[in-house]
Amino acid sequence: MILHISIDAHNPLQVATALAEVFNGKVYKFFTPGSYIVMPFDKYGTHIVVFKEGDVWVPGTDAESARVLQAEPTKLVANHAAISVPTTQKQIEQIGQREGWRVLTRKQGDGVPFSAIEFWVENRILFEFLPPEFTPQYLQTMQSQTIEKMFGQPIKLVPV
C-alpha cells in the first residue's frame, strides 16, 4: 500500500490546491520552502507532497537521512500513481479542465485492464484517479489469476 508520494510542480500551491480538491483534503506548507503537503485525512494517512519544480530527493551520507536539493527540472517524468479518491468522475474532469490539464477517462475493455481517469498534473505528471465506482473493478483486476493472464507466470528469482 502506498501511503504517500512526492512530486514537483511549476506552481506547487496551484497543484496542491487542485489535488486537495480531488482528495477532499487540505493543503499545508511543508518543511521545504516553497513546497506543500496535501492531506485528505483518510484512515491510511495518505498524503502527497508537492515540491517546487526541480526539487529532488537525494540520499544522505552514512547515518544522514535523505534530503531535498534543487536540480535541473524535467518536462516529463516516469513515475505515476493510481489512487482511489472520494470524488466523482465529473468532479475530477471539471477540476482538470478548469486547470487546463489533460484529463481522459479510460474504460475497461478499451485497450486497458481497468477503468481510470488520467489526470495530467501540469500536463506532465500522470495520476490515475479511481472514483468510488471504479475501485472495485481495479481491485478485481489486480488478483493473481487476472495478472497471470495478462503477464504470464511470475519470474522465479534465483538467490545470488
Rank of each mutant, 00 (worst) to 15 (best):
K52P: 10
S84C: 13
T32Y: 14
Q70C: 06
A82C: 15
V68A: 05
Q14M: 06
E99Y: 11
E53I: 06
V103K: 02
G100S: 04
F51D: 12
E72L: 14
F23L: 10
V50W: 01
P73V: 14
K52E: 10
Q94M: 03
T61W: 07
L19S: 00
Q94W: 01
L76G: 06
V58S: 02
A16N: 05
V15E: 00
I83A: 02
I83R: 01
T32I: 12
T74F: 09
G54W: 08
Q70N: 14
A66F: 11
P33G: 08
S84F: 01
K90W: 03
G54K: 01
T17I: 07
Q14V: 06
A18Y: 05
G45C: 10
V58R: 13
A78I: 03
E64W: 08
T74S: 09
P12E: 05
A63I: 14
G109V: 05
V77G: 05
Y44I: 09
D42K: 03
E21P: 02
N24G: 15
I95N: 01
A82D: 14
V50P: 00
V56P: 07
H80V: 00
Y44P: 04
A66K: 05
A18F: 11
K107T: 13
Q70T: 07
R106N: 07
T46K: 03
